[in-house]
Simulated scan of single mutants.
Amino acid sequence: MLADPSASNAQLAERCGVTSASLWRRLERLREAGILGGVQARINWRALGWEVEVSMRFTLDKTDPRAFDDFIAALREVPEITEIQSFLGSVDWRATVIARDMAHWQQIYRDRILTLPHLAELDALMLISTIKDSGELAL
């Protein structure tokens, strides 16, 4: 299912060597257990002209008790951010930022990233290539 989420139940049943009804029951149990959360479309941003992808890592000044709430509220307002994650450890947050080109990235960085509240440290990692991005795991 991960390799081809558009496959029909009949195709999946054939691959698994079970009947369509049996496959449907198995999929329902997986959904009820919270293992399968649905089918998701993945947008190819580069095909739409968004050529730059940057992984930002943020460490906050935690002396203000509202630092996390203020920061995440401001981060959510940046429309070019496609993903936000929180961490334990020396890095508090990670976000994926996309831009049309380097000039657009520079504008986002100056106007939206550097103005985020409670920043203590930030690190920008420019994506060069993606080697693996499947989410697949042999079970």
Score class of each variant (00 low, 15 high):
132 K>W: 14
115 T>R: 06
96 T>Y: 04
49 G>M: 02
125 L>A: 13
81 I>E: 00
10 A>V: 07
135 G>M: 11
64 D>Q: 09
61 D>G: 02
85 Q>D: 11
21 A>P: 03
42 R>I: 11
101 D>L: 12
44 N>E: 12
15 R>W: 06
33 A>P: 08
35 I>P: 00
51 E>S: 12
53 E>I: 06
135 G>Y: 14
12 L>D: 03
56 M>D: 09
67 A>G: 00
127 L>V: 04
33 A>F: 03
124 A>Y: 07
61 D>N: 12
120 A>S: 07
119 L>I: 02
114 L>A: 07
126 M>K: 06
27 L>S: 07
70 D>N: 09
116 L>D: 03
37 G>V: 05
95 A>V: 13
49 G>D: 13
67 A>K: 01
124 A>V: 02
135 G>R: 08
81 I>C: 09
117 P>N: 05
136 E>Q: 15
32 E>S: 08
36 L>A: 05
33 A>Y: 01
23 L>S: 06
46 R>N: 11
84 I>V: 10
75 L>Q: 07
106 Q>D: 15
37 G>N: 08
135 G>S: 11
19 T>K: 14
128 I>W: 15
91 V>N: 01
45 W>L: 10
110 R>N: 03
136 E>K: 14
117 P>S: 06
85 Q>F: 12
108 I>M: 03
88 L>S: 15
40 Q>V: 10
33 A>G: 09
51 E>V: 05
40 Q>S: 11
77 E>F: 03
26 R>L: 14
2 L>Y: 07
63 T>S: 13
60 L>A: 03
98 I>R: 10
78 V>W: 06
57 R>W: 10
64 D>S: 09
128 I>D: 13
71 F>S: 03
31 R>K: 14
23 L>I: 05
95 A>K: 06
75 L>D: 00
3 A>T: 04
100 R>H: 03
113 I>F: 06
132 K>H: 08
6 S>K: 08
14 E>D: 11
120 A>N: 07
97 V>M: 12
84 I>P: 01
24 W>I: 14
71 F>V: 04
83 E>C: 11
21 A>C: 02
22 S>F: 07
123 D>E: 14
119 L>K: 01
35 I>Q: 00
124 A>I: 05
63 T>G: 15
12 L>E: 08
114 L>I: 09
66 R>H: 13
91 V>G: 08
79 P>D: 12
44 N>Y: 03
114 L>N: 01
71 F>W: 04
49 G>Q: 00
6 S>E: 09
104 H>G: 04
14 E>F: 12
11 Q>K: 10
